[in-house]
Design a protein around this nucleic acid. Sequence first.
DNA 1: TTGAAAGCGCTAACAA
DNA 2: TTGTTAGCGCTTTCAA
Lengths: 332, 332
Amino acid sequence: MATIQDVAKKAGVSVATVSRVLNKNQKVTQKSALKVERAIRELDYHPNFLARDLRKAESNRILVLLQTISNPFYATIVRGIEDVARRHGYSIMLCNTDSDLEREKEYLTLLYKKMVQGAIFLDTEMSTEQLNELAENNSLVLCCEYRKGVNVPHVMIDNYRAAKTIVEHLIGFGHRKIGLICGDRHLESTMLRYNGYVDALKEHGIAMEDNFIFQSSESSFQMGQRAVETLLYKSDPTAIFSMSDIMAIGALKALHKKGIRVPDEMAVAGFDGIEYSAVSVPGLTTIKQPNYEMGCAAMELLIQKMHNETIANEELIFEYELLIRESTLKNV
Amino acid sequence: MATIQDVAKKAGVSVATVSRVLNKNQKVTQKSALKVERAIRELDYHPNFLARDLRKAESNRILVLLQTISNPFYATIVRGIEDVARRHGYSIMLCNTDSDLEREKEYLTLLYKKMVQGAIFLDTEMSTEQLNELAENNSLVLCCEYRKGVNVPHVMIDNYRAAKTIVEHLIGFGHRKIGLICGDRHLESTMLRYNGYVDALKEHGIAMEDNFIFQSSESSFQMGQRAVETLLYKSDPTAIFSMSDIMAIGALKALHKKGIRVPDEMAVAGFDGIEYSAVSVPGLTTIKQPNYEMGCAAMELLIQKMHNETIANEELIFEYELLIRESTLKNV
DNA sequence: TTGAAAGCGCTAACAA
DNA sequence: TTGTTAGCGCTTTCAA
């Protein structure tokens, strides 16, 4: 494996000159440059980035923490993060935390170990205090999942308003018995959506009943299916609002198995706007979050943070979209 | 940021002793060890891994190349890779290549740059020659996507036999006009599945017709939908075999839109066994690949390779499973 | 514009 | 068992 020394020798210049050619930031005569470039080609030389990063005390690498890449909601966000990262010469390390605090912390040691320069959280198990402490010495950004009191730049939609919007959409079709498939209550987004649901009901004079709520901290097809079993057992909704598309799709499946027609006998609405919501049978009404754009914005915030630039707005709120599909469109 | 020097000073020992404590591989008196550990705690010291990796000429990091994490088929494989990697002290860098050769090569420079010690390909755009050349100086493993003539350890199922199995399943239900949604023909797995389809027909005395084949190099819901449009336009199949679940699910959607009942008017079979296939409406008959186990095996192979151990078997063939669900079960 | 040399933080060979 | 020291491959300061 050729080193910068080998290149210098072969080109008949000093290592400093080779380094200058490599980094294209200082004056080098064209003649030297050509000699160096030729030597690089002939030796098939590649700089050792461990050495470079050590010397420059930077890594151009960032950490992206998410619960699991299996969740299609994250895939598009990551795509956005990655595109911006690449454009700025950063590469990303994607890490599944499995919602395990220990695992999350293990990955975060990469910050101290200088393997990465910053981190984007798509979700986190850490407490507000832990996050704030970590943020003191490190560049962090939260994407889609913010918690009040956390002093970290973040990107998100107005979860409260979005949930209210979609529940009002259901109410607009005459539904007054609306079941809720509720997500992990440790997540602020869940609580905001919950409040949106509650307030929509309240403002339309509908009493809220616990029987109409199914709670699951894990968002999976299975839980969506179980939600339907439970909700139908303990109540008699005519519509269901699920806080994630994944669970909504599980619900559609369970309803189909039971022979309950959607939307005629039961309307179903989701949240997130994953790709699959467009091809489920029936198509799923949902709130589309602008994942890609949010991912891009998160990475841009992180770059500013890592460069110690002042961030004009630490809270970026994106617009969502209500996608109306067959799952709520009753044939009147 | 504390360094090993600071710890040595604080503990009143040499940096070598600190290093020994850190790496727990050499004799250190308990007394020294305690002093060092205390200093580490007090200074909140974390070793700089850039320095360590440079010095040891190793990184304990590997590259995982895939087309896109959006593809749920990959998610489970990655989980397997990651679990084994973690167990052995490796971390992984997940990279979306977008099936772009340039992008793939860019990531692969991380091997030369010494940022990673090995790579697992879930797919690749490189030629056989390019792969073989890269394999000369680097530790590589292919997972699920192997090409004849490539001199690299690999893990896969018997794609030929699996495709034949599922097509015979369709034939068993009396289908003789079986449409094919064919994947990217640059992939060996596609060609093997194609041969399985062809031979199944042949052995049952069914003539193969090009009209019954839809070709797409991109596996997406959209393409699955378009496949149905096209196949129904130019032929009259009673069953469709899709080489990926993703496209099969798109096909289910298109059939539903057209009011064609599955499986009564059209049977549909997929391939891969992604989670969605269990909750689509109707449930999708498919070939389940043991993704998680294959991911684990791929990582284990890579570790052996990186440790220069001799690999007993460079080709690991895993068993698949035919999952029979509603999409092919005609109500006789 | 160039080169010599220091040093990033660590590990490991060698000597004590 | 411990300490001294060279050196991993690079960038950058300083002097020429």
